[in-house]
């Protein structure tokens, strides 16, 4: 464990994954509450054609244009989802699934095409699919921290607007807020989180990072502020634990370790959280029946 402080690589990766966990935890709380858990999955898959196109257009293997491409494609994907829901009979989950598969398919197609270009492998386009957390550089962590910091500040600023958006958007419209703009703002922040995550856990696993911490946090509290903070904590925990686990043995890939840690946190929360946890539910039902015997349904008397 002390390696966390002494080992440069572990420190760098843990920091990067940890910040990613915080950001995706905070934003994921809102997507989970809005029943949009598939959103993270959709955006991260939709980002693929953007990455490849950015490479094809710029011919560069620098991470920056690729990340911008990822962000733009992911963002366009969300706009398309909104347009589909608005103008067709297809509902939110259908639209997300549709955009996810079509964009990802286009991305794979472009990826295959790009193989004919000599620099494709150098750019590590394939790596965006599954992440390359262990290869996080100092600059990457700085970028992650800055982008993540901006996202968190925006959430803090627009706290009540996001709460309104998640609980009762129609009421928000009546009050005079432009709920459409707030929706786009929140979604844009999610896109930023996804883009941060692409370099650590990759496209395929990023959806887990957006959903897991939020879903886990919901189990432990009934207050939104606590939920968001817990979610950030869980996300950070998953990131750091994943990095630590990856450092314990050879060939322990970091990205999957992070996601597995996040999943473990979810399972524990689902089972053991007081009030909402399954184990507590079971204990409670046993206790009341066994101790008190049958209850009169009308008078409530035993």
């Amino acid at each position: 464990m002390f390696d966390l402080f002494t080992d440069y690589t572990l420190r760098t990766v843990a920091l990067g994954a940890g910040v990613l966990g915080i950001v995706s935890g905070v934003l994921g709380s809102f997507t989970v509450l809005r029943h949009q858990s598939l959103l993270g999955d959709a955006i991260s898959h939709a980002a693929l054609p953007g990455i490849v196109l950015a490479f094809l257009l710029t011919g560069s293997n620098e991470p920056l244009p690729l990340i911008v491409g990822a962000g733009v494609a992911g963002w366009l994907g969300t706009l398309l989802v909104r347009a589909i829901v608005r103008n067709t009979r297809i509902k939110n989950d259908g639209a997300l699934g549709l955009v996810l598969s079509v964009f990802f398919g286009m991305g794979l197609m472009l990826l295959t095409y790009s193989q004919s270009r000599p620099d494709a492998s150098q750019a590590g386009l394939d790596k965006f699919l599954f992440g390359q957390a262990a290869a996080l550089l100092r600059n990457d962590v700085i970028t992650i921290a800055i982008l993540g910091g901006v996202a968190i500040v925006v959430v803090a600023l627009f706290w009540k607007e996001f709460k309104l958006l998640s609980f009762d958007p129609e009421f928000g419209t009546v009050l005079g807020f432009r709920m459409g703009s707030i929706d786009v703002l929140l979604t844009t922040l999610v896109v930023i989180a996804i883009v941060i995550g692409l370099q650590t856990v990759g496209v395929v696993l990023m959806s887990a990072m957006v959903v897991a911490p939020g879903a886990a946090a919901r189990q432990w509290t009934d207050r939104l502020s606590v939920m968001v903070c817990l979610s950030a904590l869980f996300g950070a925990l998953a990131g750091v634990t994943g990095a630590l686990l990856s450092s314990t043995g050879a060939r322990m890939p970091t990205g999957p370790m992070v996601v597995l840690s996040a999943s473990a946190i979810v399972v524990i929360s689902l089972l053991f959280a007081p009030n909402r946890g399954l184990v507590w539910d079971w204990l409670r039902s046993r206790r009341t029946v066994v101790q008190s015997g049958p209850q009169d349904q009308v008078t409530g008397r035993l």
Partner: peptide, 19 residues
Amino acid sequence: VDWDFPTTVLDVVMMGRYG
């Protein structure tokens, strides 16, 4: 609305003042 949202009664009523 989904009443399983993590918030209190007072909080919901305060939303009326957001405008």
